[in-house]
Structures are given as structure tokens and as C-alpha cells.
Design a protein around this nucleic acid. Structure first.
Length: 455
RNA sequence: GACCCGUUCGUCUAGCGGUUAGGACACCGCCCUUUCACGGCGGCGACACGGGUUCAAGUCCCGUACGGGUCGCCA
């Protein structure tokens, strides 16, 4: 039997990191087993659905590289079309009829309820192990959040609203049966729902899929991640210059481990090969944005220059650096060792392209503290101006000469030179950077800085 | 409140009854670099607690504490 997994988001308008990770685990599992990954839109709640909010999810999945074999956006969508729950009502009606035929549903104020069996139901979860629940018992009381008391409740679950629309548990199970899903991999928040789903499977006489409930991702303070939290939304990663492969790498390791020390997966194929539900934890994890950035930097360092160029171009353009500029390739080589995200790239290479520098205050203050700095810089400018060959090693010689003539160590000149020429004490390797900026501009900047910025 | 899941450095984790409890991020220090980084080396730092079982327990069992989840005509 072919392995079939699915990701079933509601079109909320956001692709949350937690949802993305759920999608990733389903995708990895399907790819590992040569199976199919199905995307299904759970839009039974009409009020929350719109095409634009779906686009956010689809584009986020595409950006991550999580391609689906059946689902929206495909032509044709697949053999179980449609993949929007709002379009599948006839299917739900026929399944409802099966329940009616067996007297398993009844009317309750125009809503329909499914008779829950009075027996222990065992969820055989691939990650959490066996979980046994009696729905009749646990459902007979309910916690009222407002009064903070237990109240009597009807354990039978509502599967259809008075307006005829179906409820999540029902459609979820029906679709998973119809779409021949073999492995239901989803957040642990669904674990308590699963006995209900199993009761429904049994009522339909359907075979159970395998269940795997993955732990939740929490904020750094242990609270539940919501869309307003730092790093919570996939499109923030897109905008902030993250590489999809780095985000995938980080997400994969947040709740799963291949065992051993391996962390960096530059190749998605390696990740697919190593991925295993057995390595998924049963405890929640906290999201560490810092480590995610570090991982992104690792991936940037390993990027082939061509692709680094491609993924950086939009960030360079935003900073007013034109695509065809011949200085870009050399600039990128300078930037790659320093960039944690692609947003850092224009910051690092900016001084090569722009003459108007925003002098960093702390850097200027530091330079001001160097004794006789103005005279040093003017002497440096003179030596650089006389340089016959504007290459990195020659530039170094000029700086050395300037240091000799002013009787300081070369190290003393480096910082003022850097700040004068680039605006900041932090930046790329200075000599090649100066080479790329060009002799006239470097000299002019140093003189200008000495006259205008230093009092 | 009931039910369910969980608990190894601050964080992500390795560990599958016998380990000086390993790695990574972050942090600190040193080296490399007459610059910024990268890199290298080192430091700090954890088995929630209490009972069992066992010659031996982070590893198995039971409690307690703590964290999370669920208890909808949301998904």
C-alpha cells in the first residue's frame, strides 16, 4: 500500500511555523517512503475562508519546497478532487447516511449528534504510545471556563450544525478515509480528539490509519506560539532573508533528531533519508530564533555563488544596488562569511555602491578616541592617493607606509580607515573592500571624514 | 476541575542499566588575523523531586511537583 500523508490547514491567512513543521514532517515521511503528500483545505468554517488567505499558505509551502502531489493549485488536482472541504458536501452526506442507517446519529435542536460508544478506545500512537479513553465517561462532564466548574454535558459529538454544515471531526475523518490517508501526522493538540475520530472510523467500518502526534513548538518563555510572536510566521522568514533550506533544517530538528550529533543538513535528500518517526520526541520544544539564524548563516556559507547571487538580488535591489552591476559577484564573496541573513548582505556591501554613508555613532566615537587621528587619516589619504596599483595587497603596503611615516603601528590605522571609508567599525574584510570601493572614492571619503566628522 | 501528553546544561538535543553524562546555539576567555569576520582551542553549565526494582538507574516501575494540551454547533 502506498504511503499517503496530508497537511490540512484552514485558510487562516497565515502559515505558522508550527503548521509548517507539521507539513514538513508529513512531507518528509511521504518522500522517504515513496508515497504521496496531499494538501487539503479545511474551510468548513466559511467565515474564515478566502482565496488570498489560502495563497499565503500555498506560497509558504512552495517557498519551503514542500510540494504536494494532490491538492489545490495542481492541474489536475488529483484523483480525490475536490480538495476543499467546502466543495465536498455530497461526499459528507453519503457518509452521514451510513451513520443514519445504523442509527448512530440523532437530532439535537436541529444539529446532528453522533452516538459515541460506551467503551475504552485505544489510540495506538506511533509517538505517544497507547492512549486509552472512554468517550462516554470523559464526555459526560465539561469544564466551564467562565464559572470554573464542571457541568453536565452530552458526550455524543455534534457532527453537523443546524445550517447543514459539517464539523471538523466528521469531515476530517471522512476525507482521510476517502483520500486513503495511511498516516495521520499532526500536532499533539489533536491527541485528545483522536478517540472521537477512531469511533467514527469504526462506525464507518473503515480501517484506521496510523496516528503520530508530534509535540508542539512553544515560545522561548514556554507560552504557546501565536502569530504575533517573533519568528512565528513563515513569510517573515521570506522577508527577512532566510533561506528555505535553512528554515527546513531548523524546523526538522525542532522535535526530531536523527540520533547522534548531526545538525546541518545542506541536502534535503539527506534529510529525507534520515527522517524517521521514531526520532520524533514526545516532549514540546521551545523555539530558539538565535539558533535558527545561526543555521541560516551556515547555509549561506555553503551556498553556491550562483544561487547566493540569485537569492540576494531582491535584497540588493531594495538597497538600490542594480542587478547588472559588475561589482556584485566580488561583493557577495566578501559578504558571505558575515551574513546571517540575506538582509545583512546589502548592509555589508553597501559602502561599495553608495557614497553617502550613515556613520555609526559608536564607531565614530571610538575613532575620535585615537590620538592625533585627524593627522593620521590625512597622512593615510596621501599615501593611498599615491598608490600605483589599487589591489588589496598593495593597499596594505600603502597603509603600512602611512603607519611608518606617522610612527604608529598599522593596527592603529585600520580602525579609523575602516570607519572613514565604510561608516562603521564592523564590516567585511577591509582590504578587498577598499579595493572594490575604488581608490578615488576611498581617498575622498577619508579626507572628507577627517575634515567634517572629526572636530 | 477531569482526562491526556511530557520533564537531561538558559535553549535544541545525544544517551536505550555500568559514560569523567557527549554535541550544537548563546555567553565568557585564548589563538589565528598588524582590520572585520570565518575558523581553531578552552571555560561556564543539566539528568525536577521522593520512593522502589537491581550488584548497578538519566535510562525500568510507582508517586509528587512542575510544564503543556484537550474538554465547542473552531480547526
Amino acid at each position: 500500500m502506498t504511503t499517503r500523508t496530508r497537511f490540512a490547514p484552514s485558510p487562516s491567512g497565515f502559515l505558522h511555523i508550527g503548521g509548517a513543521r507539521t507539513a514538513l514532517y508529513n512531507w518528509l515521511f511521504a518522500r522517504k517512503h515513496g508515497g504521496k503528500f496531499i494538501l487539503r483545505v479545511e474551510d468548513t468554517d466559511a467565515a474564515r475562508s478566502s482565496s488570498s488567505s489560502l495563497d499565503v499558505i500555498l506560497s509558504g509551502l512552495r517557498w519551503l519546497g514542500l510540494d504536494w502531489d494532490e491538492g489545490p493549485g495542481l492541474e489536475p488536482e488529483g484523483t480525490h478532487s475536490p480538495y476543499f472541504q467546502s466543495l465536498r458536501n455530497p461526499i459528507y452526506e453519503s457518509y452521514l447516511q451510513k451513520l443514519k442507517d445504523n442509527d448512530l446519529v440523532y437530532d439535537d435542536n436541529s444539529a446532528l449528534r453522533f452516538r459515541v460508544p460506551d467503551k475504552d478506545i485505544t489510540v495506538r500512537d506511533l509517538i505517544c504510545g497507547d492512549v486509552v479513553v472512554n468517550l462516554k465517561k470523559t464526555g459526560s462532564t465539561r469544564w466551564d471556563a467562565e464559572t470554573k466548574t464542571e457541568v453536565e454535558a452530552n458526550p455524543d459529538i455534534v457532527i453537523r450544525r443546524p445550517d447543514g454544515s459539517f464539523i471538523f471531526h466528521f469531515v476530517n475523518v471522512v476525507d482521510d478515509i476517502e483520500m486513503e490517508i495511511t498516516h495521520v501526522i499532526r500536532g499533539e493538540d489533536h491527541l485528545p480528539n483522536t478517540p472521537k475520530h477512531i469511533a467514527l472510523y469504526e462506525a464507518f467500518g473503515a480501517n484506521l490509519p496510523e496516528f503520530a502526534h508530534i509535540p508542539l513548538n512553544l515560545n522561548e518563555d514556554g507560552s504557546k506560539m501565536s502569530k504575533s510572536d517573533n519568528g512565528a510566521l513563515i513569510h517573515e522568514y521570506i522577508e527577512n532573508g532566510f533561506l528555505p533550506e535553512a528554515v527546513v533544517n531548523y524546523m526538522a530538528l525542532l522535535g526530531w533528531s536523527p540520533g547522534g550529533d548531526r545538525e546541518i543538513y545542506l541536502s534535503i535528500d539527506d534529510l529525507i533519508r534520515d527522517f524517521d518517526l521514531k526520532g520524533v520526541h514526545s516532549s514540546n520544544s521551545k523555539f530558539d530564533f538565535n539558533k535558527c539564524k545561526w543555521m541560516n548563516a551556515e547555509h549561506i556559507k555553503a551556498l553556491p555563488i550562483k544561487r547566493f547571487h540569485d537569492v540576494s538580488s531582491s535584497f540588493l535591489e531594495q538597497a538600490g544596488i542594480k542587478p547588472g552591476d559588475t561589482r556584485i559577484p566580488a561583493s557577495l564573496e566578501l559578504a558571505r562569511q558575515r551574513a546571517e541573513t540575506l538582509m545583512d548582505v546589502p548592509k555589508v556591501v553597501g559602502p561599495i555602491f553608495h557614497d553617502t554613508l550613515a556613520y555609526d555613532e559608536a564607531s565614530v566615537t571610538k575613532v575620535t578616541g585615537v590620538s592625533e587621528v585627524k593627522a593620521l587619516l590625512l597622512a593615510l589619504a596621501d599615501h593611498l592617493e599615491k598608490n600605483p596599483s589599487w589591489k588589496a595587497d598593495q593597499i596594505k603596503n600603502s597603509i603600512k607606509d602611512a603607519a611608518d611615516s606617522t610612527q604608529v603601528k598599522i593596527g592603529v590605522l585600520m580602525l579609523p580607515c575602516r570607519v572613514a571609508a565604510t561608516g562603521s567599525m564592523a564590516g567585511a574584510d577591509l582590504l578587498p573592500l577598499l579595493e572594490l570601493i575604488g581608490q578615488d572614492r576611498v581617498v575622498a571619503r577619508i579626507r572628507n571624514f577627517a575634515e567634517k566628522q572629526l572636530i
